[in-house]
């Protein structure tokens, strides 16, 4: 007996099943058939380690798209071109900036977009470019990682310097300094016992200084009085004296000018002569002094000379020896 199946029913069931399956897949994939997207390019300087396709793109912390592709820049191999796709309603303007960020310490990277001012014009594709290009800015965290090796080296050097500073000798010196400081502070603490005496002395000194200031003030007042009253007369007399002295100097100047030749001759000729004459007089005075001394001691010898035995060249003896 042949089974009479309802082909229409089976076909309807299969089609219904397929349609349900497609709907389920769409529901599972959360495909937004109504969504519109825009593609952009971002050129990063250097590495984009940790960034992969499908990595999320955030705008002010809101996921607004994902990374479509990562390639080297066609014109500059030192840069990396990242193709991203954003929802059409994301306000990307000329002032928007893209930055590579990391999630915690896992090393997974994502792209963070920051907006510009609301008045900035929307970002458009430049001539010759496939997609509009969002300006990239360096990531602070990435800079820290880049400079980390140098920081480690500097830290090692600093540790070496600290080790030198904290050598045994310096530690001993620091200990001495601390002990001296302790002794000094102890002495200061002991010295504060005499603080009252010291304050009393300072008060006495201040009182004396006050008296001195009063006396100085009085002296200044007297000086002002002297200058204003007595000094006028004194200055007048001094002026008169100076005028008289000036007149006298003028007369002396005239006298010298009139006798310039004579004065020059005296200075040039007579002064050396006087100088030498004084020297000769000194010698003469000394000779006279000796003569007077000899006369006082033995007048006869002074006049007729001392008795001495002359040397006879023929006998080669003195006269006394000869006799």
């Amino acid at each position: 007996m042949e089974t009479r199946a309802s082909y229409v029913l089976v076909g309807g069931f299969v089609l219904s099943f397929l349609a349900g399956l497609i709907a389920f897949a769409i529901w599972i994939a959360k495909v937004d058939l109504d969504a519109e997207y825009k593609d952009y390019d971002i050129y990063f300087d250097g590495t984009v380690s940790g960034l992969y396709k499908r990595s999320i793109v955030y705008y002010l912390g809101i996921p607004v798209g994902d990374v479509r592709d990562i390639t080297l820049a066609p014109q500059d191999p030192s840069k990396v071109r990242v193709w991203i796709r954003l929802r059409a309603e994301v306000p990307v303007s000329e002032a928007s900036r893209a930055r590579l960020e990391f999630q915690g310490l896992t090393g997974v990277a994502y792209i963070e977009l920051s907006g510009g001012s609301p008045n900035s014009p929307p970002l458009e594709s430049h001539l010759g470019a496939e997609r509009p290009i969002i300006e990239a800015e360096p990531s602070p965290l990435l800079e820290i990682f880049d400079s980390a090796p140098n920081l480690v080296n500097e830290a090692i050097k600093m540790l070496g310097q600290i080790q030198k500073i904290l050598s045994n000798d310096n530690v001993a010196n620091i200990s001495k300094t601390l002990s001296n400081t302790e002794r000094l502070t102890g002495n200061l603490a002991d010295g504060t016992d005499n603080l009252e005496v010291m304050v009393a002395d300072v008060q006495i000194i201040l009182a004396e200084a006050k008296n001195a200031a009063v006396k100085i003030s009085t002296l200044v007042d007297n000086g002002n009085t002297l200058i204003e009253e007595d000094a006028k007369q004194l200055i007048a007399e001094a002026t008169g004296t100076m005028q008289a002295a000036t007149a006298m100097l003028n007369r002396v100047d005239g006298l010298v000018a009139a006798n310039e030749g004579t004065v020059t001759q005296f200075i040039g000729g007579s002064l050396p002569e006087v100088s030498r004459m004084i020297l000769d007089l000194r010698l003469t005075a000394r000779s006279l002094s000796r003569l007077v001394s000899r006369i006082e001691q033995n007048p006869s010898e002074a006049l007729f000379g001392a008795k001495e035995a002359p040397y006879n060249l023929k006998t080669r003896k003195t006269e006394e020896e000869g006799n």
Partner: peptide
């Protein structure tokens, strides 16, 4: 300047230096 003569050298007599620092003058000259 006028020379300063040492002891016993001044005058018209010719000085004679004898042993032991004895001084004399030359006779007849």
């Amino acid at each position: 300047e006028e020379p300063l003569m040492n002891q016993g050298l001044s005058g018209v007599d010719i000085a004679v230096a004898l042993p032991d620092d004895q001084r004399s003058t030359l006779k007849g000259v």
